[in-house]
């Protein structure tokens, strides 16, 4: 400890130049038992790292639902770091296995939305890996700096897509799939009915794409009533596919058809009870 302290103090005076350059805002969700403890040890050992990460302590990384992450990206976060215990070390036994699965879904949704998935990072940090924590933060900050400021704030279309991804992350289908994913894989092992992981992932990816597109239709038609063609153009999705989504959404009573000019039907999202 003492040596690190002396080292840090010796360098204390030279503030880095260019204090006005853009600094990314990164949220770090750290689990109480390992990664937060690792960050604490990092502090105790005086390993220095850039000031960009703002840590939010959670009991377990498994608490971080896709919705939380996607809502924050929609709100303009430049980067999000999720820290957990190493696999098999989770204080809650299996928590971080779910975290891993959920992170995959989040990245997929970010990709669909057009946000660089590299802005989201999952790391396992143990309570003795103080130095590792500082390295991760340093590296990740560099990476986010390279990606530049989140474009969500300036690009309204991107923001809509981000909201759509957030919406998709809250759909029953995706959450149920990810919730059951681990169980299916495991059950496969125990009862011999092997459910291949890659097969399962394919299934989830396809579902993710569908749900994202539907969610985007809803977002876009929330703004104003739109025709299938218009939606297809904005979304860059073939109209027949848009139509199929609309059929599903209508069945679920989530979208209504209107005929403003009596010819081309347009669609408007049905909003219930306003914002939650």
């Amino acid at each position: 400890m003492a040596e690190n302290v002396q080292h840090a103090i010796a360098q204390k005076k030279d503030e880095p130049a260019g204090a006005n350059e853009w600094e990314p805002k990164i949220i770090g969700f750290l689990c109480n038992w390992c990664s937060y403890a690792g960050a604490d040890l990092c502090g105790v050992s005086r390993y220095q790292y850039p000031t960009n990460v703002r840590a939010v302590r959670v009991m377990c990384s498994t608490r971080i639902s896709p919705h939380i992450v996607l809502e924050l990206f929609t709100a303009g976060a430049d980067g999000i770091l999720v820290g957990g215990c190493h696999l098999n070390d989770c204080h809650y036994i299996t928590g971080n296995f779910y975290t891993e699965k959920r992170l995959r879904l989040m990245k997929k949704l970010l990709e669909d939305a057009g946000i660089e998935p590299q802005r989201l990072r999952l790391e396992w940090v143990s309570a003795s890996e103080g130095e590792k924590f500082s390295k991760i933060v340093t590296e990740f900050t560099e990476q986010v700096k390279k990606l530049g400021p989140s474009k969500v704030k300036k690009d309204a279309a991107l923001k809509t897509r981000a909201s759509a991804a957030d919406g998709a992350s809250q759909t029953f289908r995706l959450r149920a799939l990810v919730g059951k994913e681990l169980g299916l894989e495991k059950t496969g092992n125990v009862y011999g009915q092997k459910l291949d992981q890659t097969e399962l992932e394919k299934l989830i990816d396809a579902a993710t794409k569908d749900e994202f597109e539907r969610s985007l239709i809803l977002e876009l038609s929330k703004q104003k009533a739109r025709s299938v063609k218009e939606l297809g153009q904005i979304m860059d999705v073939p109209t027949d596919k848009v139509l199929r989504h609309i059929v599903v959404l209508r069945q679920k009573n989530m979208i209504a058809m209107e005929h403003p000019d009596g010819l081309t039907p347009t669609y408007k999202a049905i909003e219930i009870g306003g914002e939650q």
């Binding site: 038992w33 403890a37 070390d89 309570a127």
Partner: peptide, 17 residues
């Protein structure tokens, strides 16, 4: 100890609490 057999979990992580 660094890690502990037979699961190789970090010793201080489980001991410190």
């Amino acid at each position: 100890l660094d890690k502990t057999f037979p699961t190789n979990d970090c010793s201080i992580c489980i001991l410190a609490p």
